[in-house]
Amino acid sequence: MKLDHPTLWLILPLTLAVAPLVWHLPFWVSGFWVLAIMLKLLRPDRAWPVYWLLPLAAGVFLGVLAEFRTIIGPQAGVSLLVAMSGTGRSWPSSAISC
């Protein structure tokens, strides 16, 4: 596993920004996010294909909706934000904007 600078500069701030939130989120959202980070660490050069990414993002959206019965409000909104930050194709602007 060899990390290039851009990947490191995306994963490091994102991890620092999300880490303290993990304890406040539903278990599956935190788990999903940790898994996404680990995949990115293992294969930093590989971008997720769009035909995976779209169903994944839709699944996350529906998961949050099912969990909170809404996507509005602090808890649901933060969960959606964190989960979606893990689904960035190669985490370009979505991760940086956090």
Binding site: W9, L12, P13, A17, C98
Partner: peptide
């Protein structure tokens, strides 16, 4: 401190 790291990340790009 995280904001400093985030800004540094943007600068690095």
């Amino acid at each position: 401190l995280v904001a400093v790291v985030l800004t540094a990340a943007i600068l690095s790009s």
